[in-house]
Design a binder for these strands. Structure first.
Length: 426
RNA sequence: GGAGAGGUGUCCGAGUGGCCGAAGGAGGCGGUCUUGAAAACCGUUGUGGGGAAACUCACCGGGGGUUCGAAUCCCUCCCUCUCCGCCA
């Protein structure tokens, strides 16, 4: 959620910033509704002040034995007027909220405008493997090595699901263990959150109301008004850990990480070239998260990105890091770095990690604040999230990049302690 | 699923329809004392809206109602806890 005061005071700059991300902006409408809100406040406040004054007078007059019936009659009229105006005021506030909540976060100054094609590659690590044979794609490898069962996955979950089996399951779990171990080493607190969340969680994260269609909703329980949904990423859970809380300043930064599967409808986004495990309705991810003070969130983002990068490098994969252009950053985020691994069969780099700074955008939506020691005042915290990492895309990268001519795959050094073997397929 | 209890400020906790934005305590901040710290003592300290300001309005889980006037009474919804039942 953007700050209405900022919008009023820096309309031009805000519009320019938003246009880096979205095609059309109309802040005048919001400001006009806000004007109406202020006008109504003044009007009702005057009436309420009168009501309060007279109401405190009445018991005194009664004590003096004076007649108050005329006054009571008059006040009844005032009360009715207040009631009518209050309804209009709350309607106006609702309208404000509905206009504000669909505005995305404003990009940081150093974020370029436009979409994907304006993403800036800031670093490349390693190089594309040069196969002296015709490399296989991960679907063929994963199937022949009995790591993944696509057909049975679909038989159980329908289109867009797969299942891990044998060494495939062990490899997937080894990746998760590797990440968990690293995050624990860095002092992050491990969270295993609920996978089923309430509406408010999606709202705070910035997914709702705009992207409600992207998640799996559960049928509302009998008699319940609100349905729950399956989390599309553990970020949605973690941002809500401190929702409606006030954190003492000296407890910041709060550093968490979580493992959950991520459930996504991804309606209509299937493409022939994204077969296999590049895009599915369920994938595993370890997610890092930080709550920080406003002045430290910039550094925290670099920290998170570096952590994610170290994990990919630790696996020995060829990857690149990009700073995303404004329109490619997600709705709630001011700045995002992506780490993309090389998928030989697709001749493309695919995202395995996204590190983002939401600044105070999510904090406003979820009313998450900290108490600043020097002033004693409550301020919105900054929130950051970073995948560390998404495994469903790492596994294809690993088996494709590390495949041998005989169809076997070398196990990355850091995973050997869990896999207990050097080569898959032997 | 059945029965009961409860949701108040940064936290804990009191609150007869007007004297309640709200006792008391803890915590924070400032000070006295101390070589320093602790303890003790004194003072101070809610959030948000409107306004240049004076000031004013709202907020005691959410929404409605009764009333000239609601933290307090009524309705309704949500949530939490305890006990019983069922269950991995």
């Amino acid at each position: 959620m953007l700050d209405i005061h900022l919008i009023r005071e820096n309309k031009k700059q805000m519009e320019t910033a938003l246009l880096k991300k979205i095609d059309t902006v109309n802040l005048d409408e919001i400001i006009a509704v806000d004007d109406e809100r202020k006008r109504l406040i003044v009007e009702t406040d005057e009436l309420k002040a009168k009501r309060n004054e007279v109401s405190s007078l009445i018991p005194k007059m009664k004590k003096e034995g004076r007649d108050v019936t005329g006054l009571l009659e008059e006040m009844k009229g005032v009360s009715d007027k207040i009631k009518t105006l209050d309804i209009r005021l709350s309607d106006t506030k609702l309208k404000m909220k509905s206009l504000l909540e669909v505005l995305p976060n404003i990009p940081d100054d150093d974020v370029l405008s436009g979409g994907k094609k304006n993403n800036e590659i800031i670093r490349v690590s390693g190089s594309k493997p040069d196969f002296p044979f015709k490399p296989k794609d991960h679907i063929e490898l994963a199937t022949s090595l009995k790591l993944i069962d696509y057909e049975r996955g679909v038989k159980m979950g329908g289109n867009g699901f797969w299942l891990y089996r044998g060494d495939g399951a062990v490899l997937e779990w080894a990746l998760l263990n590797y990440f968990i171990e690293e995050h624990l080493k860095d002092g992050y607190e491990f969270i295993l959150p609920p996978h089923v969340l309430i509406y408010e969680c999606g709202y705070t994260a910035g997914q709702f109301p705009k992207f409600e269609g992207d998640v799996f909703h559960l049928e509302p329980e009998e008699g319940k008004r609100f349905s729950q949904f399956l989390l599309p990423t553990s970020e949605t859970a973690l941002i809500n850990y401190h929702r409606d809380e006030i954190i003492p300043e000296d407890e910041l930064p709060k550093k968490y990480f979580a493992y959950t599967p991520c459930y996504r409808r991804e309606a209509g986004s299937y493409r022939a070239q994204e077969r296999g495990m590049i895009r599915g309705h369920q994938f595993n991810k370890v997610e890092m998260f930080q709550f920080t003070t406003p002045e430290t969130s910039g550094d925290a983002l670099e920290q998170l990105m570096t952590k994610a990068e170290n994990l990919v490098r630790g696996l020995g994969l060829h990857y690149q890091v990009s700073k995303l252009a404004a329109a490619d950053c997600s709705f709630s985020m001011a700045k995002t770095y992506d780490i993309e691994v090389w998928i030989p069969s697709m001749n493309e780099y695919k995202e395995v990690s996204s590190s983002s700074n939401a600044r105070d955008y999510q904090a406003r939506r979820g009313n998450i604040r900290f108490r600043r020691k020097s002033t004693g005042k409550n301020e919105f915290i900054h929130s950051l999230n970073a995948s560390g990492l998404a495994t469903s895309r790492l596994l294809p990268a690993i088996i494709e990049q590390f495949q041998k001519e005989d169809g076997t795959v070398l196990v990355p050094e850091v995973l050997k302690k869990w896999l207990k073997k050097d080569v898959l397929g032997k």
